[in-house]
Simulated assay, not measured.
Amino acid sequence: MRKDAPATGGTGRSGASPARSTRFYAAVSIAAALATVGLKAGAYVLTGSVGLLSDAAESSANLVAAIGAFWALSAAARPPDEEHAYGHTKAEFFSSALEGALVLAAAAFIAATAVGRLFEPQPLENVGAGLVVSLVAAVLNGVVGLVLLRAGGRLRSAALRADGRHLLTDVWTTAGVVAGVLLVGWTGWLFLDPLIALVVAANIVWVGLRILNEAAHGLLDTALPPEDLRVVEAVISRYRESGIEFHALRTRSAGARRFVSMHVLVPGSWSVRRGHDLSEDLEREVVEELPMTTVFVHLEPLEDESSFRDQGLDRPDLEEPPPGS
C-alpha cells in the first residue's frame, strides 16, 4: 500500500503535482482586480453613470473572490494528513462557490441601484474620460481572464477557471456599459443608463449560476469527464486481452486531482507477487496517461462467484454474473 492510499485495502498510486503553482495565477488575479476596481471606480466618479457603477461593483466582487481563491488554492496545495487522507484539493470548490455567491450579490446590488436611477434619472458628466478609463480596465481584464482560463484548464483548477470566466464576462459587461453610456451621450435618453445596468445584472446572474453549478458538481464527487474515462478504459482494455476482468470502476475529481478505483479479477492460482506486480503496472499506466491521478486497485479471484457480487450496488439486478453462467 502506498503512503497516500486510505487504509481500506488495495494499492494506490498518485501522479506528481504540477510544476507551476496555481497560487501564482491567483496572485495575478488579485493584482488585476485591484487595478480594475480602482479604474472603474474612477470612471464612475468622473461620469456619475450607474452603468459604470455596476461595472465597478462586479469587479469588486471579483477582488473578494480572487482573495478567496488564493486562500483556497493555498489550502488545496497542502499534502494529505491523518485527518484528510485524500488531500485538501476540494477547497477549490469552496472558492468557486464563494465567487458564484459574490457574483449574485453584486447583481442584486446593481439591480437595486439601477431601479432607483430609473425613477430619478441623472445627467452624465465627463463621458469621454470615463469611457477611456473603463476601456483600459476591460483590456486588462481580458488579458488576465484568458491567462487564468488557460492556466485553469492546464492545471485542472476549478478556482482559476471560475475566476477566468468571471473576468471575461466582466469584459463583455464593460463593453455593454460603454455602449450604453455612448448612447446616452448621443441621444440624451437618460433612462438608457440604468436600463443597461439591469441587463448587466441579468448577465451576471447567469454567470454566477454557472459558477455555482460547477462548484456543486465538484463537491458532489461527479465522475471524471468522458475524455478522461476513455483514457482509463483504453488502459483497461489492453489487460482484458490477456484474460483479466474488471468491474466496479469508480472515478471522481477533487480540484486538480483525479481518483480512480476498480476491482481487478485475476486467476485464483496467481501468487500474491504476480497480482501485486499487475496492480503496480496498471496503476502506473493510468497515472502516465492521466497525471495528478490516484489509483486504487482491489484484486479478486476470477473463479469465485462472490467476486461479482461485491460492487457495492444497491440494486441486485445490476450485479454482473460470472463469465459462462
Rank of each mutant, 00 (worst) to 15 (best):
L39K: 06
D4S: 13
A16K: 15
T11F: 11
G48Y: 11
T22P: 13
A31Q: 07
L34A: 12
V50T: 07
A35G: 06
G9R: 09
A32R: 01
A16G: 13
V50S: 00
P18D: 09
A5E: 02
D4F: 14
L39G: 04
V50F: 00
A27W: 05
V45P: 04
G42L: 12
V50L: 03
T22G: 14
A32K: 03
A27P: 05
V37S: 01
G9S: 04
T36P: 01
G15Q: 03
D4I: 15
Y25P: 09
A26G: 01
I30P: 09
V37M: 13
G42M: 12
A19T: 12
V28W: 08
Y25R: 05
T8A: 14
A5Y: 02
G48N: 00
G38Q: 10
S21Q: 02
T8L: 15
V50D: 01
L46D: 02
G38D: 08
F24D: 12
T22V: 12
A26I: 03
A16M: 12
A32D: 04
Y25G: 07
Y44E: 00
A7P: 12
F24W: 08
L34G: 10
R20W: 08
R20D: 12
A5R: 11
L34T: 07
T47W: 01
V28H: 06
R20C: 11
T36G: 05
S49W: 03
A33T: 06
T22K: 12
A33M: 09
A31C: 06
A31V: 10
V45R: 07
V28Y: 06
T22L: 08
D4K: 14
T47P: 04
T47K: 02
T22S: 15
G38M: 09
S14H: 07
V50H: 00
A7K: 15
A19E: 15
V37Y: 00
P18L: 07
A16I: 11
A7T: 15
A33D: 05
Y44P: 00
S17Y: 13
A35S: 11
T36V: 08
A19N: 08
V37A: 06
S14W: 02
G15F: 04
A5V: 13
V37H: 02
F24L: 15
L34H: 10
P6S: 08
R23Q: 13
A19K: 06
K40Q: 06
S17D: 14
V45M: 09
V28C: 12
R23E: 05
A35M: 10
T47F: 01
S21D: 03
G38C: 13
A19W: 11
S21T: 07
T22M: 14
T36L: 05
L46P: 03
V50K: 00
L46T: 06
G10H: 04
V45G: 09
T8N: 14
R13D: 01
Y25S: 10
G48Q: 03
A16R: 14
R23P: 01
A7M: 14
A31D: 06
T8C: 11
S14D: 04
R13T: 03
S17F: 10
A7D: 15
A16F: 09
P18S: 11
S17G: 09
R13P: 00
P6L: 09
P18F: 01
F24Q: 15
A41L: 15
I30F: 11
A26V: 05
V37C: 11
V45T: 13
G48A: 04
A33Q: 05
